[in-house]
Design a protein around this nucleic acid. Structure first.
Length: 310
DNA sequence: CACCATGTTCCTTG
DNA sequence: CCAAGGAACATGGT
């Protein structure tokens, strides 16, 4: 299937902010590419910095770690690095409390954000954790509270291979899909099968591969599995590339957070990126047929009924 | 005001 | 034990 030209869409539109300023929330949730871009931007800002104090505003998001445990572990600690596993952020620190490097596991949930801001800035309404780093504060805020910031690493063990990693191979993918009668779209969201894909890029990958989201996973032919595997890597790689080419301004003022893009609202934030997600009843960029929206496993799926026949 | 959106976890059912 | 399906969680937006 010919891959439509993403860089020069026939009908250029302007995107809306992926993570707008607080008080201006729009649909959209961070997946692997957004977390990767965030990790790359946070790593140089945090590495080497020492935590002088910890303020916990919403202890629930640390569970099962207590405020006291997190504080004891982090105060006096020094950041060694920031990495990513699936949609999780991994912060490693040299703690005063123990000789071995300490791992803090973060997750943005649906509305989480992490950024640095000058020390002394008033705490925002949805702040979960604030780490004092001398001249600056590292802030994790989350309006809806599905995110995490914890010493508990249990969730990591349940993750399948990284979507962009060497262990996610075509043979592995084919084997994993063969075991399920569920729709392929639903399986793409299964973090134990492959880690990092969420609702947005699942629809995008299936569109790129020209496959129906409703095909039962085990019915895909070898050639279709290969195409989907390739589409997943391309879609995620491209999204990371877009994010990392954008200047990384951290929030503080509205309209300066330019990290992530998607959507169709007119604005000054860049060019439309996504081809089917949230585009119900708009023309398919490839054939012009109206994009359909269906619900699978209680999540919206967007696809072109013509380009993505069973 | 009722309902929607969403990632993850937990619970139930087969 | 596993696969599948659905509820629960939380809360701003519509």
């Amino acid at each position: 299937m010919a891959i439509p030209d993403l860089q020069h869409p026939a009908k250029a539109r302007v995107a809306r902010l992926y993570w707008p300023a607080v008080g201006d929330y729009l649909p959209g949730v961070p997946e692997l590419p957004e977390v990767e871009v965030l990790v790359r931007s946070l790593a140089p800002l945090l590495t080497g910095r020492t935590v002088s104090a910890v303020h916990v505003r919403r202890p629930k998001l640390l569970a099962p770690t207590s405020t006291r445990q997190l504080t004891r572990a982090l105060v006096g600690g020094r950041f060694l690095g920031v990495a990513r596993r699936g949609k999780y952020l991994l912060f490693t620190l040299q703690s005063l409390a123990q000789p071995a490097p300490l791992l803090v596991v973060g997750h943005l949930g649906m509305t989480g954000r992490m950024f640095l801001r000058p020390a002394g800035t008033p705490t925002t309404k949805h702040a979960v954790v604030v780490l004092k780093l001398g001249q600056e504060d590292f802030v994790f805020e989350d309006a809806r509270g599905f995110g995490r910031f914890t010493l508990d690493t249990g969730a990591l063990g349940k993750l399948g291979p990284e979507a962009l990693g060497p262990e996610f191979t075509v043979p592995y993918f084919a084997q994993a899909l063969k075991r399920s009668s569920q729709a392929v779209k639903v399986k793409l969201l299964d973090q134990s099968l492959v880690a990092g894909i969420g609702n947005i890029y699942a629809s995008e990958a299936l569109f790129r591969a020209g496959l129906s989201p409703r095909s039962p996973a085990r019915r895909l032919k070898a050639e279709q599995v290969s195409r989907l595997w390739r589409a997943i890597r391309e879609v995620l790689d491209e999204a990371i590339g877009w994010g990392s080419t954008v200047r990384l301004d951290y929030p503080g003022t509205a309209r300066r957070d330019r990290l992530f893009y998607y959507g169709t609202v007119e604005g000054e934030f860049g060019t439309e990126r996504l081809r089917v997600y949230d585009h119900a009843d708009e023309p398919c960029p490839r054939c012009g047929t109206l994009i359909a929206r269906v619900v699978q496993a209680a999540r919206s799926t967007f696809f072109c009924p013509v380009c993505q026949r069973k």
